[in-house]
């Protein structure tokens, strides 16, 4: 098939000559090379690894390294074991809580940026994104130094207590669920702020003015005009925070306690210490399905809320 004769797909509106006038022209080997390069890499180093995991998830661990391809569903059923189901539900709870906290903190920030003077906006947006570009491990480490027993928060509280003459015991801020949620919010905040900002940027400002002209109080104009306009961003942001938070490994590993493990920690254990690859593979696939399922919600939610308020 000659790719050129089939015409362009994107870039419509630029080359507006009628189809038949466009000469049949040999595209040469170029697209073939490009397709071969990117396609082969994708197949070999992305789809093939995933296929391995998929196949293994139906297997059975025999001995230390042998995996028998039994085509069994046992590994998936094992995920329903109360022990793992509990961790699964806890992960969903922690990720949900992370999304909620990010939303509560992110909405004012997004509104603040969207309504800031135009020349400040790029700087403020950059300030939101910048921490996100820093190595995850370094950010988590920075939080450890803040939250640990001899950390900055406890030091400040200690000085304050001393100044007030109160007795002070350092708070156990690290190695619990709260620390995990703080860490997850810290890491995923930009995913919430940016979609919210994008939604607010698209909002018709005159609607707020109209509401105010018609006698609404500022608070009412905010809740009946600005917040509904931000809803698509709320859905997008919530999903974009929830999905990576659900699969996060490092935060719960370094900031969580013995009982604040998440699915990713269990998966890691199956592959490294527990050495039960089929079960780990099944859990990985369940996590992938959960991520896809959540992402699939977004278009549906967007359609539902696009209508009149």
């Amino acid at each position: 098939m000659d790719p050129d004769s089939s015409g362009l797909t994107a870039g419509a509106g630029t080359g507006r000559r009628p189809e038949r006038q466009r000469g049949r022209r040999r595209a040469g080997l170029l697209p073939g090379f490009a397709a071969l390069g990117s396609g082969l890499w994708f197949l070999l180093f992305f789809l093939a690894p995933l296929a391995f995991v998929w196949v293994f998830s139906f297997g059975r661990q025999e001995g230390l390294i042998d995996i028998e391809l039994a085509w069994t569903l046992d590994n998936y059923l094992r995920a329903l074991d109360p022990l793992y189901l509990d961790i699964l539900l806890r992960s969903i709870w922690l990720a949900g809580l992370t999304a909620a906290v990010s939303l509560a903190l992110g909405l004012p920030v997004a509104v603040g940026i969207a309504f800031a003077p135009a020349r400040w906006k790029p700087l403020l947006l950059l300030l939101v994104v910048l921490p996100f570009l820093t190595n995850l491990l370094i950010r988590t480490y920075a939080l450890i130094a803040v939250l640990r027993t001899k950390g900055y928060v406890n030091a400040v509280l200690g000085w304050a207590a001393e100044w007030l003459g109160l007795p002070f015991e350092p708070l156990p801020l690290l190695y619990n669920d709260a620390a995990v949620v703080i860490g997850l919010v810290y890491v995923h905040m930009p995913f919430m702020i940016l979609p919210l900002y994008a939604a607010l940027e698209r909002m018709d400002r005159s609607l707020v003015e109209a509401a105010l002209d018609l006698g609404a109080s500022r608070a009412r104009a905010f809740w009946t005009v600005v917040v509904p306009a931000a809803l698509p961003g709320v859905f997008a942001g919530t999903i974009l925070v929830f999905v990576p938070a659900l699969g996060s490994y490092l935060t719960s590993d370094l900031l969580g306690g013995a009982d604040s493990q998440m699915i990713a920690n269990v998966i890691e254990r199956q592959f490294k210490r527990a050495n039960d690859w089929p079960f780990g593979a099944a859990l990985s696939l369940l996590l992938i399905y959960a991520a896809f399922g959540t992402l699939a919600l977004r278009p549906a939610l967007a359609r539902r809320w696009r209508g009149p308020r």
């Binding site: 903190l105 309504f115 370094i138």
Partner: peptide, 29 residues
């Protein structure tokens, strides 16, 4: 005026608090 959410005191406080939350750990590091 009415649209200047960024200039409200509480809004500025929240903005400042979030940016401190985002940057203080790295700055301390």
């Amino acid at each position: 005026g009415p649209l200047d959410y960024t200039r409200r005191a509480w809004m500025r406080f929240v903005l400042l608090a979030v940016f401190v939350f985002l940057y203080a750990p790295l700055a301390a590091l």
